[in-house]
Amino acid sequence: MSDPGTITDSGSSGEAPVTMLATPIRLDYQYTAGLSQSRFLQGIAQGKFIGQRCPACHKVYVPPRGSCPTDGVATTDPVELSNSGTVTTYCVVNVPFQGQSIEIPYICAQILLDGANIAFMGLIQELPATDVRMGMRVEAVWLPKDQWGLTMASVKYFRPNGEPDADYETFKEYL
């Protein structure tokens, strides 16, 4: 042991001083989807969008998350929704990011399925990114039936369904 004394040289070995420390972290979890999400995904595996109605305010949530967020009660009443809906608002994604699997630019839209009271984010394809509009009517395009599974990836994307655009007044409360 050398004598204790004040250290004046921080890198006596001649190497550069240590300034960074790598501390990799890996944690494993067993994730539980819960009842509502499980029911929804089992519907998807059968090619259906199944929402849930709040017994208090009667709004239909899709995908359901177990509770009505405004009433704090369980949404237990299942409601099968249409395969078509309305684009309430959207953005054009023009930036690459980690985990992205689609060629840019592409359209991400809030889609309000007919019969639902809340929109969810969906991909719009089969039209140029510049042609998307608020109010555009779209339908879900599914993977071949034998590829349906317990995942939203069973829905490939949404595309225009040919109907005339919805009037702004009909969806403005969902913005």
Binding site: A33, C91, Q110, M121
Partner: peptide, 17 residues
Amino acid sequence: PFSAPLLAGAGGFFAPI
């Protein structure tokens, strides 16, 4: 697990608003 695929990245949440 089971969540919808990440479609838009961080700004994709705000741009539609």
